[in-house]
């Protein structure tokens, strides 16, 4: 009897890698290039060299954590690629990546920005809420796009072994 094909290993790999890469994008673009916020910038505003360096430390811890997330995602992708019962689909993987990125934005936005107030998306304004809400909305859009692609990937039913890899 033929084993049914599974999609969850590829979705999980995409989700973990997407969340990790989304975290890197946040750290590189919003923390370092645009310098809109740091991990603890609402608790410890980086307005002195010492405060900026303390924030830099916590940014580093954050980057280390998302690196681990990405590495685990890569390991899961490797495991999925070696299984003959996993449907090999680009749409499913990219959908998982977008889903992971969106999930990261929503979870991080809700916990760090809204609930705990560790930092806000854009610190250099009086009204920080619209920026935080825009970040959450972007995350929700990514979730929808990822979910749509994963649904479309249901039609891809060829295992990787069928490609002669």
């Amino acid at each position: 009897m033929t084993e049914p094909l599974h999609r969850t290993p590829l979705i999980a790999a995409g989700l973990l890698m997407g969340a990790g890469l989304g975290g890197f994008l946040d750290g590189i673009v919003l923390h370092q290039i645009l310098q809109w916020h740091n991990m603890l910038s609402n608790q410890l505003p980086p307005n002195t060299l010492v405060a900026a360096k303390v924030n830099m430390y916590w940014d580093g811890v954050f980057h280390a954590a998302v690196w681990v997330l990405t590495a685990i995602g890569l390991r899961v992708l490797w495991a999925a690629s070696r299984r003959p019962d996993v449907a090999w689909s680009g749409r499913t993987l990219v959908g998982g990546l977008l889903l992971g990125w969106g999930l990261f934005n929503v979870v991080e936005g809700l916990i760090d920005h809204t609930l705990l107030g560790l930092h806000h998306v854009y610190e250099y304004t009086e009204d920080k809420l619209p920026w935080d809400m825009a970040f959450l909305a972007f995350g929700a859009l990514l979730l929808l796009a990822g979910w749509g692609l994963i649904r479309a990937g249901r039609r891809d039913v060829t295992p990787r072994t069928a490609y002669g890899a």
């Binding site: 999980a12 973990l16 954590a65 990261f104 991080e108 760090d112 560790l118």
Partner: peptide, 13 residues
Amino acid sequence: LLLLPVAVVLLVG
């Protein structure tokens, strides 16, 4: 607190 969102996403994955 800083690792909490990463842990949540990891658990989901």
